[in-house]
Simulated assay, not measured.
Amino acid sequence: MRTKTILTNGDVKKIAAAAERHAMARNWPVTIVIFDDGGHLLHLNRLDGATLSSIEMALAKGRTAALGRRESKFYEDLVKQGRVAFLSAPMTGFLEGGVPIVVAGEVVGSVSVSGVKSEEDAEIARAGIAALEL
Rank of each mutant, 00 (worst) to 15 (best):
D36S: 07
N45S: 07
T8D: 08
K61Y: 03
S53A: 11
S110V: 08
G109L: 13
A85L: 05
A23L: 08
L87S: 03
V33N: 01
R69G: 13
G38C: 10
E120I: 12
L59K: 07
S118C: 10
I124S: 04
V84P: 00
F94C: 05
L67D: 06
L52Q: 08
K80W: 05
L67A: 10
S54V: 04
M91I: 15
I124T: 14
G62T: 09
N27Q: 11
T3G: 14
L52K: 04
S54F: 02
I32Y: 01
E120F: 12
E123T: 13
M57C: 03
R83D: 09
A17M: 04
E106D: 15
G62R: 04
A104C: 09
T5N: 11
F86H: 06
A66R: 10
D48W: 02
K4Y: 13
A25I: 00
T64L: 07
D37Y: 12
N9V: 13
H40S: 10
F35G: 00
G49C: 09
A89Q: 04
I124M: 02
P90E: 12
P29F: 06
A18T: 02
A19R: 01
L41K: 04
E120A: 14
D11S: 10
F74Y: 15
V116L: 09
E20F: 00
L47C: 06
D37A: 13
A60Y: 06
W28D: 07
F86M: 08
F94Q: 05
N45I: 00
R26P: 04
I55M: 06
V103M: 10
L132M: 12
R26M: 11
V79K: 04
R69D: 07
V113Q: 06
M24F: 01
V79G: 09
L42A: 01
Y75D: 05
L41Y: 03
R26I: 08
P29K: 06
I32R: 01
F94H: 12
I55N: 03
F35E: 02
M1S: 15
V99E: 12
S114Y: 03
T92I: 04
I101V: 15
L95V: 14
G98C: 09
K14R: 12
K14F: 00
R26A: 14
G49H: 10
E106W: 06
K73E: 13
